[in-house]
């Protein structure tokens, strides 16, 4: 295999500049090791074979993006950096937004994050370089590429991908209400609720975790978000919150959150408190206990 030099050109289609600023940090700060990929930053899009595109694609950027793409020689690779480029994120549904990007150009690698850590950006570019090599040699892009950079540790406090403790969640929809980028969808099923978090729409702000009354939704420090584009709609956290069946009347009911009970009854064993009867049967039992 002959060595192909990846030539990077960045296009900002309306980002808040977070991804662009962090791209500069990724490119010029040694600790992110981008030089190990042998990439070159080029001044002219015509010389480029690896596009880094940020932003949700504004109406005014669209014709210029097309113009720039037309100047490029195939094959080339597109790495979308930042949640906006993948799904328009927080800016979705605005009159001025024509994205996401993949409406207009085939995207190879998506890097969600708001902004992504430089380590994620570097990983996204590394995957892009791999795809570029395969394209140049006429090979088919695989469905999955293993992580290229090995060091993926972040401080414990880093707000990475959100996750859910199913047993704590009651499907109260607070997270859905405070999420600014509609990354959370809670839907009713026959047995309870499905709670979905779409990492590619998430702006990693932590609002959901902050406002969650039971401590169910929380952030992890996992920032493994540089993925091939076939993962775009499947990089989600799916949780099922199931009804319990009342041991008395056999009706289904939403059990109280262990998180909340733990806060309310600090000195008691919550598991014992959580007798499996529904609120109306409990009311009836209490009434009988007091007045019968």
């Amino acid at each position: 295999m002959s060595e192909i030099i990846p030539k990077v050109f960045r296009i900002n289609t309306g980002s808040c500049n977070g991804c662009d600023v962090e791209f500069v940090a990724t490119a010029f700060v040694d600790k992110f090791h981008i030089e190990s990929l042998g990439v070159e930053l080029v001044e002219d899009v015509k010389d480029s074979n690896l596009l880094v595109i940020t932003g949700p694609l504004t109406a005014k950027s669209e014709p210029f993006l097309k113009k720039y793409l037309n100047q490029m020689k195939k094959p080339f690779v597109v790495v979308g950096v930042g949640t906006c480029s993948v799904s328009c994120g927080i800016f979705r549904d605005s009159y001025a937004i024509n994205g996401p990007l993949d409406k207009f150009v085939e995207v190879d690698v998506n890097v969600a994050g708001c902004p992504p850590r430089p380590q994620s950006i570097a990983e996204g570019i590394a995957k892009g370089v791999k795809v570029l090599n395969q394209k140049m040699h006429g090979e088919v892009t695989p469905k999955k590429i293993d992580t290229i950079f090995q060091d993926f540790s972040a401080p414990q406090t880093f707000r990475g991908k959100m996750a859910l403790h199913e047993g704590m969640c009651t499907g109260c929809r607070t997270c859905e209400t405070v999420c600014p980028s509609t990354a959370i969808k809670i839907s009713k099923t026959d047995d309870g609720f499905t709670h979905n978090i779409w990492h590619n729409s998430c702006c990693y702000c932590g609002n959901c975790a902050y406002f969650c009354p039971t401590g169910a939704i929380h952030s992890t420090n996992n920032f493994d978000t540089a993925k091939l584009s076939n993962h775009k709609y499947t990089d989600i956290n799916i949780a099922h919150i199931e009804y319990e069946t009342c041991t008395k009347c056999q009706e289904k009911f939403m059990p109280p959150s262990r998180g909340l009970l733990g806060k309310a009854y600090v000195h008691d064993d919550v598991n014992k408190l959580n007798a499996k009867i529904c609120p109306s049967c409990r009311k009836e039992a209490n009434f009988k206990r007091m007045y019968a």
Binding site: S87, C88, R92, D93, I97, T182, K185, N196, W198, S201, Y233, T234, I236
Partner: peptide, 11 residues
């Protein structure tokens, strides 16, 4: 349909 509706239906 909003863009959000369209994307979530794909998910």
């Amino acid at each position: 349909l909003s863009d959000t509706d369209v994307l979530w239906s794909k998910i």
